[in-house]
Amino acid sequence: MARNGPGPADRELIATLAEQDLRVSVAQLERWRGAGLLPRHERRWLGRGRGSVAVLAPATVRIAAVLARHARQGRDLRWAVLDWFAEAGRDPDMPEPPDHAVCQAVPWAAQASPAQRLLRQARDARTEHLQDAFYTAAGATVPSGALGVDPAAMRAILLGGDDLPPESAARDEGQGLVHLIAAPGMGFDEVGADALGMAFAATGLVPQMTAENWSSSIQDMEPAGILHGPLARAARTYAFADGRDATAEDLRAARTVYYGLAGVGGLLMWHALGVPDTPTQQALRATVEEMGIASWLMAMAAGSRPPSTFAGNVVTCLRPDLARVHDALIEQITSSPSLMDRSGGQEPHDPDQFMKDWIATLTALT
């Protein structure tokens, strides 16, 4: 920082941010510049030997604003970079964080996610005492019904006054997810076929398969060594992936996949909350049901906070198979009539009226 205080461009930047109720100091600006996050002001030459002046660029204002919103004293700057990265994926006018900052922040934050902490704890649980400690920690971290609810069942409850599903179903799903976390770390043989059957059933990826069906299939795999060979290796690869080898371009593409999948999950949650139904929504739900990923997509929709969970989801979405699922779902949406078109493209539709009807439905239930 110059001894004679901030220059005109920094004074203008600080004043512009103050108009947005954002308070920053010159020391903060220099800290962000030192970390390679905030660009230095471009200089405009005045000509005829008059030297140059620093010029405040609009992009610099936007970057300083997002950092001011998310960077706090005592908070690691990588969290602010992650919040910035998340915001840039939603706002096309927001400049992207520098590549080096993204490649540092996303893997670092993903390692701090609750799921990764539990996976590491399961991997290190080599004694019965440590395994008991893992299951205690997992039971406190993974809530019952963590993968979401059946949107159609929830809609029926909301609109028709049907009974809530039994608590045992949500409890079983939560226990299944705990076993799903335990398996890559402890090993399939340590968890056992029955617990694995519950775990795979909890994912909902093959709706026709019950926990008993899964357990029987797993027992059939054991003599052939499938569980302890290729399946175990694949599970460990996916479970412990942290994105450290991903480029910034890879991570931005994965963010697009995550937001797209989470968006479809949000549409399912809308259906559960009584949004007016349309042919395009019905067709999309049918595709999702065929894939068996409805609950998982709703969990993705709920996974943008905390930031570590967002980072973990972005790393998960580096997988090519998820990119293909994303592309198929988005293609179906973009090639169909509007999600708000109740006529299926036969008549003009009114988005404002669509939302008013939904609000009226919710209001009538209160």
Rank of each mutant, 00 (worst) to 15 (best):
G47L: 09
S216K: 12
G5W: 12
L158H: 00
L267R: 14
H129F: 08
G204N: 11
R78T: 09
G263P: 01
L119E: 14
A122H: 11
A146G: 13
Q73A: 13
F240P: 13
L13Y: 05
Y258V: 01
V53D: 05
F310A: 08
T127D: 10
L29S: 03
N313G: 01
R72Y: 10
A294K: 10
R285G: 12
L38W: 00
A110Y: 06
A64I: 07
F240R: 14
V275W: 02
R123Q: 13
R233K: 10
A125L: 05
G161N: 09
Q111W: 03
D10V: 02
E87Q: 13
G263F: 04
R305H: 08
P95V: 09
E212Q: 04
V325C: 01
R252I: 14
P207M: 07
Q104P: 03
V142N: 15
T280D: 08
A101W: 11
L339Y: 04
R155N: 08
T237R: 13
P8Y: 01
L329C: 07
A71G: 05
Q121T: 03
D91Y: 02
A241H: 10
R324T: 13
R50A: 07
A199Q: 02
C103R: 10
A68R: 04
E19M: 10
G5K: 06
Y259C: 04
R342F: 03
D132M: 08
Q353W: 09
M340S: 13
G345Q: 14
Q131N: 01
P92S: 07
I330R: 03
R236P: 01
L329P: 00
S217Q: 15
R72C: 04
G7A: 11
N213Y: 02
A201P: 03
